[in-house]
Structure formats: C-alpha cells, structure tokens
Design a protein around this nucleic acid. Structure first.
Length: 592
RNA sequence: CGGGGUGUGGCGCAGCUUGGUAGCGCAUUGCGUUUGGGACGCAAGGGCCGCAGGUUCAAAUCCUGUCACCCCGACCA
C-alpha cells in the first residue's frame, strides 16, 4: 500500500532546528526522518525507519553472500564477561551501567566481542566447525562524552558487527579478505564516496586493520593519502619512514652552551642564530630535539611517566600518542610531577636525564626521524643550557621509537617517493584482525587435526548502520533537501498531485496502484488544500529520487517526471507514465 | 573535564540594558477566497518566560544558586 502524505506520520519543518549544525542533521530533522529524544538518542520516524531498514537490507544481503550467519544478542549484558576481558574497567565511563533489583551489575552493550566469543565457545569445540562468520545488527550503547551531529554520533546507535573464527592466521586472512570485499560492495551500494585507510591494529593482539571512511568535511577522523601510490592511512596509523643511519665522522663533539631564557623552541632558535650562527644556513626548529614528558595512566590506575623525543618543529599528536599507548591514557605532566622528578629541568630536558638508564629513569622513546647519526640541539638538563651537535647513536640513545609526532600534509609517503595530503572522513566501517586477544582472555580453543588444543583466531568487522543514514545525506544533498540514492530512498517514486482538480487525485491514486503492481514503492502527496509550491518544496526536502507531478498538464494527457538529483523534468503521456517510471527505476537499480 | 553560548506556546525567535497586563513569524483549528514553486483575509486555541531562593508594592527583566541543552576542544572497539 502506497504511503500517503495526507495520513503519513510526518511533519516537515520550514526552518532549521536550532541545535543542528551539520547538513545531515538539519535535513533529517527538517524532512521528518528523525526526532531527538535526548542528547545522542533519536527516534526513527516512519520515513527514517524505511531508510534505516534499507541500509540494513543491503548489509544483510552482502553479509549473507559471504556465508556469514545472522544472530541477535541481547543489548542488556551481564558484567562478568567484560570483567574477564578487563573491559568492564578499561571501557570506563563510556559504558552505560545499571543494576538489577538484586544489585547485580549489568551494562548496555557498547560492542559484543565477549558475547560472540563466549557463544562460539559454548557451542563449538572442533576445527571441523571452522571457519565460521556470524553477525548481528544490533543497537549499541556508548555513553559518549559528547554526542554530536544527530545520528552521526549517537549514544544509542545501530551497528552491524560480525566476527570470524578460524583455526590459524591463514584462515583469518581469508575471512578478513571476504569481509573486506563484502564491505566494498556494501559501501558501493550505499552511494557515498569513501576511502579505505590503514588503521591502528590496537595495542594488543591485532595485526591488520583497515577503516572505511566516508569522505566528508564534517568527519571526525583525519586521514592522509598519497595521490601517487594510493597509500592511505588514518593519522593514528601513519608510519614514518625512518631515515637510514648516516655517518657522524664530520660532526664535532657535542658541546653544552649557555642559552639563557630559552625554554621554548622559538626562543632557542632565535638565540642560536644570534649567538651561534652557522655558515651554511640558519638554525631552524627542525634542528632541535624536543623532549616532552607525559604521564601514562594504566587501566589499573597505576601511573608512569613517559618521555618522547620529537623534532622541534613538530608537536606530539595526542591522538597518535594515545593510540600508541592504548589502553593506557595520557595525562599532561604537572608541576607536581616535575617536583617529584628533580632530574627533569623544565624547558631544558635532554636525553641525559631520560631513558631507563638516565638520571631520571623515565622511559624514553624517539620519533623515527631521530635516526642514528642525526645531529641535534637539545636540552642539557641544566637551566639555561643546551647541547649542540648531539648525535643520535653516538651521544645518546633511547629505549625505543614511537609514532607520536604530528603528521603534516607534505610529509613523505611511507611507500613511495611522493608526499602525503590530508583530508577528513567519517568512520563507516572497520575490518580488524583481532587475532587471539579475546579467544585467549575467554579461553576459546578447539581441537585441531592432531587432537591438540589451539586458540581460535578471530577477526572483527563493523558497519555503522544508523550512522550510514546520516553519512549518505552528508554526501547526497543540495540546498533544497536530501537526494537519496535509489536503494536507500523511503520510496521509489513520489507522486505529487499538484492542483485542486479532483481528477488529479484520482489519477494519482490510479498511477500509484499501477506502480505498485510493477513492484515499485510509492509516496503519494494527496494532501488537499495544500498549494503546489508547498508540495514541490516538501518533495525536494524529502528527497525521493524520482518525482511524478500530476498537474495542469493532465488536461492534455501529460504528466511530468522529475529527477531529484539533476532537476531535469520531462513530460510524458499520462498513459506511458507507469512504463516510463518502471523502466527508469529498474535501469537505475541494475546500474548500481 | 576546559572554553563559548542558549533556555520565553509544537518549531524558529524578539522582549531583559532602563522592572509595570507576554509578543512576532511558522505550525495547528474554523470559515471564506486561492491552487505550478513554501498563498490571502477574518476568527480561534495553545505559554507557572528551565528550576529554586532573594530584592521589590510589582520580576521574563535585577541578584544568588542550580539544572538542562547546543557549539569548539579533550575523550571515543
């Protein structure tokens, strides 16, 4: 049965809601797809629910096509499995927690690794049962510190998550590849531009991980890409190519110099150029070695300082650092921390004080650019003094390297000789080789061919289903409203009765019925007493890709087919309308 | 958690500086006119001005406190 505007539970808004900033949020509310209930929590109204279901349908079809099987876990979970993996504490404030009448702790699932793992453990115990891929489309809950942009980042959201289970790494590779290909098909069908970028595999267990990012200005993720070789990575995962070691034969011995009042890189560089000018070129920030100290807070609450050495022209990128030290959290080093570590001279920290072997005993990690043989100016661990011609490998060493320095457009590509550009994206999907992290924590093992117990190797794969709805709108709208891709639209054809003549309404109903016989879904604007202008505006706002206007032309046996995206209109004979529309819609579906 | 902002009919906003009968547009209801690009007229319903306390003859307006929401940042398998 066709949807009718006269009775549809819908109210379009002429004005933008005050709390909506990004286009998808504005339009989804204005066009009557969603309503906010509380911060980050939204109601799906009839039109919106149709779109959401369409996304789910695409996801199901492609998951089923690779042999994944759908199941459904509860959203309400007991805490015990999350205690077993440590995530009851690790997830911190992001978990919605609640207690039942007996005082037992529960949570609303933010993700379901534990449940999938335990359920496989419950039912399977042989290599013969594997490989296995199972998935669910489930409402997830995360108490985000700051939900934003409507359903783009909610506290309650719909996600497809699947997990693969294999006996070995080779099997995981195969399952991962299958999912990756399925994701390519899903995102192609969803109809927005996206990139596949290398992502952080995580501090534990994971080995390979890629994100599917919808390219969008409003995106929260920054990624870099190389226009030459196709390399693309989330900034968190960018690998800095380490320069080859260089000889230090010509470098004079390191010498400490007085550099009073130079606690910052800027003041230091100015001072160097005034007092220690070089013949070949002036000193620059990039000649200095900046040592930053932070405090790591482990999930169990223990604290440990960490020093990071980066070239002076770069900041430590907190996101990159955070990803490297996960699950520990990073806090700034406070005055109290300095007081507790007298070996550190604020503003003049140098490698002499750092490192497990250094006077402070603080673990010291270097940016890969600080390769063996490179020479630096850096703090002398004495107030008002810096060391010049300090050579890495000759005069100091560290406890390892860390990828924590900021990444900038123009940096060299790690895989070819070109440079990187930066752009923003929205994380829409994530494929992730988990490895044995959860299987080990929850003791998921099967017997192999030799009767030996082996730990199952897992992969995890997510698609943001409700987020996809917003994301599609971000990529498919204009001034007037939404422009749905065919497969997602709440209906195939929007039939508009534009006028007051009763014959228009009769014909609209007749055509709607015939379209439905042809298998198309239809929204009919059968509102009486509503002027054509209002109906046109609403049809553009709502964004069904094909609009059939039955109006003044009907007297001459003509109706008008309008393409929402291009704005093109063409007149067809009223008797040909159904055939023309059917041909248009089916042709478009096959093309996609 | 830090910074900025906003709370006034369903929605968008004005009024607050300078205290004195709560207003506008949209939406809604009725009647009439109108019907190809967000129509017009007349009439109507709907608001403890976020909440609490204070000052005052009198508070949407001034003071104190508090709560909520939005934006930027921090945070975010």
């Amino acid at each position: 049965m066709a949807l009718h505007m006269s009775s549809l539970f819908l109210r379009t808004l002429r004005e933008d809601p005050a709390d909506a900033e990004v286009p998808s949020h504005r339009l989804l509310v204005r066009a009557g797809y969603v309503r906010r209930v509380s911060p980050g929590v939204y109601t799906w109204l009839p039109l919106g629910l149709r779109v959401l279901r369409n996304v789910e349908k695409i996801v199901r079809e492609e998951m089923d096509a690779i042999g994944a099987q759908e199941l459904l876990f509860p959203a309400l979970l007991p805490k015990e499995p999350f205690e077993a993996t440590g995530r009851w504490t690790e997830y911190g404030d992001n978990i919605f927690r609640l207690q039942d009448r007996k005082g037992a702790d529960h949570l609303l699932g933010p993700t379901h690794e534990e449940m999938f793992t335990l359920t496989v453990k419950d039912l399977y115990s042989s290599y013969k049962d594997l490989p296995l891929s199972i998935y669910q489309i489930q409402t997830k809950y995360r108490d985000e510190a700051r939900p934003r942009a409507g359903v783009l980042r909610g506290r309650e959201f719909v996600m497809k998550d699947s997990y693969s289970f294999d006996v070995d790494a080779a099997g995981l590779d195969k399952s991962y590849q299958l999912h990756r290909e399925a994701y390519v098909r899903i995102f192609d069908r969803l109809g927005f531009h996206y990139v596949i970028v290398e992502a952080m595999a995580g501090a534990m267990g994971g080995s390979k991980s890629e994100e599917f990012l919808a390219t969008a200005e409003v995106g929260e993720d920054t990624y870099v890409h190389c226009t030459s070789c196709g390399y693309a990575a989330n900034v968190e995962a960018v690998r800095v190519p380490a320069p080859s070691p260089v000889g230090w034969e010509d470098v004079p011995a390191a010498h400490a110099e007085d550099t009073p009042d130079t606690p910052t890189i800027d003041t230091l560089v100015t001072h160097l150029n005034e007092r220690f000018p070089r013949d070949d070129r002036p000193w620059e920030a990039g000649d200095t070695l900046k040592n930053v100290v932070v405090t790591l807070v482990n999930p169990d609450g223990t604290r440990e300082p960490l020093a990071i050495g980066v070239p002076g022209d770069r900041e430590v990128d907190e996101k990159r650092l955070g990803a490297q030290v996960e699950p520990a959290e990073v806090e700034a080093f406070t005055e109290a921390d300095f007081a507790a570590n007298p070996a550190l001279v604020k503003g003049y920290i140098g490698p002499g004080a750092l490192g497990l072997e250094g006077s402070s005993g603080i673990r010291y990690l270097l940016d890969p650019r600080i390769a063996e043989g490179t020479r630096w100016v850096t703090g002398a661990d004495v107030a008002g003094q810096h060391v010049i011609d300090l050579v890495a490998g000759r005069d100091f060493s560290a406890d390892g390297t860390i990828e924590a320095a900021e990444v900038r457009p123009g940096d060299p590509c790690p895989t070819c000789d070109h440079t990187l550009s930066a752009a923003r994206g929205i994380e829409m999907g994530h494929v992730f080789q988990l490895g044995t992290k959860y299987a080990e924590a929850l003791d998921l093992k099967v017997l192999d061919q030799n009767g030996k117990l082996v730990t199952v190797v897992m992969g995890s794969y997510g698609v943001g289903v409700s987020r996809a709805v917003a994301c599609v709108v971000e990529g498919n709208h204009d001034e007037s409203g939404i422009i749905w891709p065919r497969e997602l639209a709440p209906a195939d054809v929007h039939v508009v009765a534009a006028g007051k003549d009763e014959a228009l309404f009769v014909k609209a109903e007749e055509i709607a019925r015939e379209l439905e016989v042809q298998g198309l879904s239809v929204l009919v604007d059968d509102r009486k007493g509503v002027s054509p202008g209002v109906k046109f505006k609403d049809s553009e706002l709502i964004g069904i890709p094909t609009i059939l206007v039955i109006g003044r032309g009907l007297a001459d046996g003509k109706v008008e087919i309008k393409d929402r995206r291009s704005g093109e209109r063409r007149e067809v004979a009223v008797d040909d309308a159904v055939a023309a529309l059917t041909a248009e819609v089916t042709a478009e579906v096959e093309r996609s």
